[in-house]
Amino acid sequence: MDWRIPRIAALVLLASSLGGCIGDGGGESAVGTATVTLTWVAPTHRADGSAVALSDISGYRLYYGPTPDHLPHVVEIEGQDTTTYELELPVGSVYFRISAMESDGTEGMKTEALAHRL
């Protein structure tokens, strides 16, 4: 995958990204891109096994990139109730990891890298 494409596109779309997102009706895909939908379940415990309340979670942090060890793109996803996220990316192989964020900004553990081919 040519990862120059999203960088260029990101610059072009900077204004819209600063706005947060485009509308839900935006189903058009640029040439050579595809939409992925990521889903997950909120963590219910800490690494030591103790329980955690949903209210302790402020959101999620999604990482993606071309290899499991190189995930330079990061998305902040707000809301503890959010468990799905759509992303439009250039076609090719891409890897994802996600972590939960605590209200005080502390990041939880990341999932293992998940591979996907668009």
Partner: peptide
């Protein structure tokens, strides 16, 4: 600090 476990059921479609 004991950190949050990773989210479960992580899938991509």
């Amino acid at each position: 600090r004991s950190r949050l476990s990773p989210p479960g059921g992580f899938q991509v479609q």
